[in-house]
Amino acid sequence: PGMAGAAMPPAIMTKFGGATKILVLLNMVTVEDLKDDEEYEDIIEDVREECEKNGPVKSLVIPRPKEDEEVPGLGKIFVEFTAVGDAQKAQLALSGRKFANRTVVSSYWDEDKYTARDFA
């Protein structure tokens, strides 16, 4: 606490272009990949390992498909860094890279929503 992004003055938010500590990575995994337990663990390991090159990863969430239920944020990967700057560094490093031969796209997620595990 203390440095929460929500408390940042508007001017800095603008400067960061909406950056937060939560980096969202898209277009990396398919629903099929996420169904398989081993594959799921491997993906978490791969993502954490690469993200940590840019700063400590506080937490990481990859929503998994549920039967007969729509899962918010499915197909997205949410990575919580300890500092906005680290998330930005990771975005620069990872956007456009390939993951399992798919082009990685990234964005940011609201920190309060992330804390509430709200991925909708």
């Binding site: 993906i43 390992e49 690469e50 456009g96 890279r97 390939k98 399992a100 031969n101």
Partner: peptide, 10 residues
């Protein structure tokens, strides 16, 4: 790792 190298960035 599933990550592609820096050289094959989009």
């Amino acid at each position: 790792s599933r990550w592609g190298g820096e050289e094959e960035k989009s």
